[in-house]
Amino acid sequence: MTTPSRYWREIPQRYRLEANKCKKCGFVFFPPRLICSQCQNRKFEETKLAEKGKVLTFTIIRVPPQQFVDQAPYAVGIVELDDGVKLTGQIVDCDFEDLKIGKRVKIEFRKIFAEGEAGILCYGYKFVPE
């Protein structure tokens, strides 16, 4: 169950791909972190993820969680963005037979799911063919 507060807290990441970058080693974290897992440094600068990348791997979900029933079957992939950050998300507007590892994709703003008939609408990023 996605409560309004839990959804709201992630808006900078879900809507605008806000990340942070370790000032010492340059590693980019999405979502932002407080301590670098690579060098334990605690100083970061704000950054935004690249909005384009390529598919590293993908699957087609045919047995979905309940909130995703109306969208199934749908593709989910891990995309390596052009800044090197890897991101999990749905790949939409692409026929399954055209989906290949290495395919170029870009970010698009979509509804991810609705919290039942009367709950909040949850938005965020998905990937579409570039």
Binding site: T2, T59, I61, V63, P65, V76, T88, G89, I112, K126
Partner: peptide
């Protein structure tokens, strides 16, 4: 991960 509709079979499929 879960937010985007991935399931456990889905993760291992990746």
């Amino acid at each position: 991960e879960g937010y985007h509709g991935i399931t456990f079979p889905g993760l291992y499929a990746l």
